[in-house]
């Protein structure tokens, strides 16, 4: 009796399996649903979601709403720029500027101080406040530049030399310096803008100066006021780039306050691109203010320049200053032994 019951159960199960086999075979024969429908094709996919919004956003209940962003394709573009393009652009900008300046130095040599009847006399070119403002901004700029370049090149150039532990420490302090010294730098940019704006308004004299090649081509010196066209370009570059670096830098110091993740990436791209061009431009400024031209450094060193140098490079300004002396609004030019 028991054996008969077991046999009956076996037959029932076998019959059920035999009945279901054709249906299973139909579904798996060629991987298609026999009804002709493809459920996968109708489901929500990545392409469909990106047609609704440039990024795929989920929903989170933790306080960090940004964590809801699941996929942001622009991030791949940003990463490609950050890891592939930026090192090349930065390297070409900085090394290219150094190479150009070295070539210019080899071609032109140091621009010598021309001896004349006014040589040996000194005239005040920049007051103490102007020089403090310049040096505060420039010293911060150097630290910001080096720490900024470390963001781009540090892991590629510095880390292999000093090792990962030392690189981590250096980078940590470089990052602190970058963020904290940005504030006196921004203050310096604002002060320079206020102090030197009136002397940096472009005018017709600048156009003549440019057409004459700034005195670098040919003989003689074109007329110039307190700042020539080249110096005005540096001024507006510093003000323009400094402002752009300040705005984009503040957006990164206070992340996500005014923009989302895409905006943050755009800010970093703009900040880094302007930064490397800014460094290249300032390298030219440093060159012409030091090794490139004899007597130029005194303007920001002691504040007093050789009167003969001033007459050569800023004749209209000298005339105006001497006019002030004649009217009693400025101290007279005193003969001071040349340093």
């Amino acid at each position: 009796m028991r054996r008969g019951l077991t046999l009956f159960r076996t037959i029932v199960v076998a019959a059920a399996l035999a009945a279901s086999a054709p249906a299973m075979a139909q579904q798996t024969k060629d991987g298609l649903n026999p009804t002709g429908q493809n459920p996968t094709a109708d489901s929500v996919n990545e392409e469909f979601l990106f047609k609704q919004d440039p990024k795929i956003v989920g929903r989170v209940t933790i306080p960090d709403g940004k964590a809801a962003s699941l996929i942001q394709p622009q991030g791949r573009d940003y990463r490609a720029f950050r890891e592939s393009w930026l090192p090349w652009i930065g390297g070409l900008a900085v090394l290219g500027a150094i190479a150009l300046l070295a070539g210019f130095y080899l071609w032109r040599g140091r621009i010598k101080l021309e001896r004349g009847p006014d040589s040996g006399k000194k005239i005040l070119r920049f007051g103490t406040f102007e020089r403090v403002t310049h040096w505060m901004t420039s010293s911060c700029f150097i630290i910001l530049s080096l720490s900024g370049l470390n963001y781009i090149f540090g892991k590629r150039l510095l880390a292999p030399v000093i090792g990962p532990d030392a690189f981590a420490v250096v980078s940590q302090y470089a990052k602190y310096a970058h963020i904290y010294l940005a504030w006196p730098f921004m203050l310096g940019i604002a002060l320079m803008f206020v102090v030197w704006l009136k002397d940096n308004i472009p005018n017709r004299i600048d156009w003549h100066w440019i057409k004459a090649g700034g005195g670098l081509i040919g003989n003689g010196h074109p007329h110039a006021e307190r700042f020539n066209a080249g110096q005005k370009m540096v001024f507006w570059m510093v003000v323009g780039f400094g402002t752009a670096m300040s705005v984009t830098g503040l957006m990164m110091i206070f992340p996500f306050v005014l923009t989302d993740i895409t905006g943050m990436q755009v800010m970093q791209v703009v900040h880094s691109l302007i930064g490397v061009v800014f460094i290249a431009g300032i390298l030219a400024h440093i060159y012409i203010g030091s090794v490139g031209m004899e007597g130029a450094y005194d303007a920001m060193g002691s504040g007093k320049v050789d009167l003969g140098w001033a007459r050569s490079h800023h004749d209209l300004w000298v005339e105006k200053e001497i006019g002030k002396v004649d009217h009693g609004t400025r101290r007279p030019v005193r003969p001071v032994p040349a340093e």
Partner: peptide, 13 residues
């Protein structure tokens, strides 16, 4: 002026 500027930068930093 340079020394004052560096001290000012560090102080502000």
């Amino acid at each position: 002026a340079f020394a004052v500027a560096v001290i000012a930068a560090i102080g502000l930093g």
